[in-house]
Design a binder for these strands. Sequence first.
DNA 1: TAAATTGATGCAAGTGAGTTGCAAAGTTTA
DNA 2: TAAACTTTGCAACTCACTTGCATCAATTTA
Lengths: 136, 136
Amino acid sequence: MNKKLEHKLKDNSIKPTAMRLLVLKFLTEQNKAVSLQDIELAFERADKSTLFRTLKTFESSKIIHSIEDGTGHLKYALCLEGCNCSPIDLHYHFHCNVCKETFCLTELNVPTIELPKNFEMQQANMVIKGICGTCK
Amino acid sequence: MNKKLEHKLKDNSIKPTAMRLLVLKFLTEQNKAVSLQDIELAFERADKSTLFRTLKTFESSKIIHSIEDGTGHLKYALCLEGCNCSPIDLHYHFHCNVCKETFCLTELNVPTIELPKNFEMQQANMVIKGICGTCK
DNA sequence: TAAATTGATGCAAGTGAGTTGCAAAGTTTA
DNA sequence: TAAACTTTGCAACTCACTTGCATCAATTTA
Ligand SMILES: [Mn+2]
Ligand SMILES: [Mn+2]
Ligand SMILES: [Zn+2]
Ligand SMILES: [Zn+2]
């Protein structure tokens, strides 16, 4: 397991420090998107800015992606294997108005959306809000 | 023109003060979503908190809707006539990575998205990012 | 091995959009 | 007119995020 995480980082030219491995492991264990604060709470010994920079490092290597779910807390979640964060890789997200959790709906990819003439899609932030299955 | 704006407010039980009419007029003239700051710049004599509360008032009456475009500046745009901000009224938004403008793509409504069992959609924040026609 | 380089981490302070409390000004109602 | 209510302006605050910089650790070079 840890070997696998270590490789994931090395493959992206990220030095697999203890902290980074812990954060990556934590992210792997979630079934929801988490905020910087969630991670701070999980690792009280670590500094916020270290965690922040860890997330930014992971994000720019496309190990994780971020979601603006409208809560004011940017959320992060693991990318799927082979994800390049290009339009073809994109999925919708769901934010529950009750439990306030944000989930990746990775089952369904974002379809091609007809844009006005000459518009080019590069990324997207798609968030559906409502009530999740657990809170229903 | 002004009469029409005045009625729009009255119809929503909002007292049509001078400031509110000016803000509504400004919003009507835009072909893009604007931030609180944009409005502050347009009305330097008005106070930020007044403008802020004006926008919140308009939003809760569904005269305007807001868009989290990922810039950290919440954007506002007029709702279409008869909009109830329900799933059926929703449209995508486009944020240009070059000119940093955010547009409502009102031509195309958000389709029904297949959600996991028991999930219920209530609102959505759909933002496509890329390059707009002007910047292309 | 020792020194030098490179990069990661921790701490503290800063940034900035958004938000709120409260008093003053303006408007409506009795 | 006086009381009641609403809107506005000002100042201060919140809070997530971000940055500068010193320190520490790991790696490379001499
Ligand atoms: Mn996701
Ligand atoms: Mn819109
Ligand atoms: Zn829920
Ligand atoms: Zn543009």
